[in-house]
Amino acid sequence: MPEITYREAVRDALGKAMRKDEDVFIMGEDIAEMGGSMAVTQGLLEEFGPERVRNTPISEMAIVGAGIGAAMAGMRPIVEIMYEDFLTLSLEQIVNQAAKHRYMSGGQLTVPLTIRTQGGAGWSPGAQHAQQLEAWLVHVPGLKVVYPSTPEDVRGLLWTSIYDDNPIIFFEHRLLYPVKGDVPEEIEPIPLGKARTIREGTDVTVIAIGPLVHRALDAAKQAEDEGISVEVIDPRTLQPLDEDSIVASVKKTNRAVVAHEAVTRMGFGAEVTSVLQYKAFDYLDAPIERVGAKFAPLAFAPVMEQFIIPHAEDVLAAIKRTVGK
């Protein structure tokens, strides 16, 4: 199995889909000659040309909206929004339009659009280039929301997203782009709504997304040294959510920690917590712990930024609280 980076895995899925299918094209700001501000689309312009690798003006509403229109007309566009903070500019088109055309038309239309975006803190970009807004989108019926944490998952899930007939918000994390991992020789599509158990354990389950998956794995290793056996589950898709796998794991371990980089208040972890208290109430031996950013915009000064965002130590501390250590 070859080892590639998360960045290369995204690029591989984009390239293979465009090679396979004339209806797939990509558009976004600075994605052509520059290869994207995160270098994800490097080399695609040379292979596919400017008609299918479309540099756009700085117009998030029109980029997303044009993607919707092209999708309604039968294509499979992939739109890149440079930072998920800028997703806010296109929310009208995502929330009122993409998510609702199928419904409002009584099933006549489909919008097979994939919106890729990235964000995340840890490199001091300040408050407008580092937010984690995935929970906002999970709240909207009609959208699917994907947030992979490994090269294999990002490639297999992006492939599935491109060929799904629904609008998909596909979150990537800036700090994950250089992360390496083994991937199958050929792309193996990963179904949406299927969690992955990354590490098995018996004492506590950590349900983590994005970079917190890696931080949770670090925490799990440290916990092991202290005699605590930790299971780590990555839901991978937030909508649809694989409730069964999460609930089954917690019924086994009787303790749960939810972890993400977004602020804890109304975060994705709040929903997972609610699912667990309802479906595994009698199995819980401790309050469910939530790990996330402190409730503040992301500060510029590294010392303040690092104070705000959650680290492996925060996950470890939460794990310990669940087992009373």
Binding site: E51, V64, G65, G67, G69, A70, A73
Partner: peptide, 16 residues
């Protein structure tokens, strides 16, 4: 709301 859609649909017609 629909203006970007017809821009995109018009782009699809052009690409195809």
């Amino acid at each position: 709301g629909g203006l970007p859609h017809v821009t995109g649909a018009g782009l699809a017609f052009k690409l195809r």
